[in-house]
Measured scan of single mutants.
Amino acid sequence: MGTYKLILNGKTLKGETTTEAVDAATAEKVFKQYANDNGVDGEWTYDDATKTFTVTE
């Protein structure tokens, strides 16, 4: 398990959240659902060194 971070750079929603997941693929699924639930759809990037996903609208 590891802690993964999501940085939201949406047009109307900005912020950060974290999740505990077994791997990056699992964290990505959780974060994409979170972003979708909050109406954020954009370009995704992932930094393996910091376990950080970023979505920018």
Rank of each mutant, 00 (worst) to 15 (best):
D48M: 09
V55F: 04
N36A: 15
T50E: 06
E43G: 05
D47K: 04
F31T: 00
D41W: 14
E16N: 06
E43C: 12
G10C: 13
G42F: 03
D23T: 05
T26W: 08
L13Y: 14
K32I: 08
N9K: 08
K5H: 13
E57H: 06
K14C: 10
T26Q: 13
A25R: 10
T26H: 14
D37T: 08
Y34V: 05
K32W: 09
E57Y: 10
D47N: 10
T3D: 06
F53W: 08
M1T: 12
E28F: 14
K11R: 13
L6G: 01
V55P: 00
T17V: 15
T45E: 07
N38T: 08
Q33F: 05
V55L: 10
K14R: 12
G39Y: 06
N36G: 07
Q33V: 08
F31P: 00
T26K: 06
T3H: 09
V40F: 11
K11G: 07
V22W: 12
L8V: 13
T19C: 11
D41V: 14
F53E: 00
T45D: 09
T3L: 14
T17M: 15
T18C: 08
D37N: 09
N9E: 08
K29E: 10
A21N: 03
V55C: 08
A35M: 06
N9M: 11
T17W: 15
M1I: 12
T17K: 10
L13V: 15
G42N: 02
A27K: 00
I7S: 04
G2Y: 14
V30L: 13
E57G: 05
D47A: 04
E20T: 12
T12I: 12
K32V: 07
A24R: 12
D37Y: 06
D23R: 03
T18F: 13
F53Y: 05
Y4G: 01
T26I: 06
D37W: 07
K32Y: 06
E28T: 04
T26P: 02
T56C: 06
T18R: 08
M1S: 10
K11M: 13
T52K: 03
L8R: 02
K14Q: 13
D23C: 05
T54K: 06
K11P: 11
G10I: 08
T17E: 06
K32H: 10
L13C: 14
Y4S: 01
Y46S: 01
T50D: 05
D47I: 05
T56G: 04
D37K: 09
Y4C: 01
K5N: 06
F53S: 00
L13I: 14
T17Y: 15
Y34I: 08
E43A: 11
G15P: 04
N9D: 10
T17N: 05
K51Q: 11
G39K: 07
N9I: 15
A27Y: 00
L6R: 00
L6V: 05
A21I: 02
A25Q: 12
V30K: 08
T18N: 07
T12F: 15
A27F: 00
D48W: 09
L8T: 05
T45I: 10
G10W: 05
T52W: 02
N9G: 04
F53Q: 00
F53V: 01
Y46R: 02
K5V: 10
T52R: 03
L6D: 01
T19I: 15
V22H: 11
K32G: 03
D37C: 09
L13S: 07
G15Y: 13
Y34G: 01
E20Q: 14
G39C: 07
E20L: 14
L8C: 06
I7N: 04
A25I: 11
T45V: 08
K32A: 05
T17F: 15
N9P: 03
L8D: 01
T26S: 14
A27C: 02
T54S: 07
V30T: 13
F31H: 01
G10T: 15
L8M: 13
D41T: 14
W44C: 02
G15N: 11
Y46W: 04
M1P: 11
V22L: 09
K14M: 10
F31I: 01
A35L: 09
G2N: 15
G15F: 13
N38M: 15
K29C: 08
A24P: 09
G39N: 10
L6I: 04
T56H: 07
T17Q: 09
G39P: 02
F53T: 00
T56F: 08
N9V: 14
G15V: 14
I7A: 03
G10P: 03
N38F: 15
L13A: 08
V22N: 11
A49H: 11
D37V: 10
L6C: 09
L13W: 14
D37G: 05
T19M: 15
T12A: 11
T54N: 05
V22P: 15
G42L: 03
A21K: 03
T12K: 13
T19A: 08
N9F: 12
A49K: 12
K32F: 06
L6K: 00
K51T: 04
K51V: 03
Y46A: 01
K51M: 13
N9S: 08
G42Y: 04
G2T: 15
D41K: 13
N9W: 11
D48F: 09
G10L: 15
K51L: 09
G2E: 15
E57M: 07
M1A: 10
E43N: 11
T50F: 05
V30D: 05
V55T: 03
D23S: 06
V30S: 06
Q33C: 05
V22K: 10
T50G: 04
A49Q: 12
A24Y: 13
N36M: 15
T3Y: 10
D23N: 09
Y46E: 00
E16W: 14
G2R: 14
T45N: 07
E28N: 05
G42M: 03
L6W: 02
A24W: 12
D48C: 07
I7E: 04
T45Y: 11
G42D: 02
T19G: 03
V22C: 09
V22G: 12
V30P: 01
K11E: 06
E43R: 10
V40H: 04
N36H: 15
W44R: 00
Y34S: 02
G10A: 10
K29D: 06
I7Y: 06
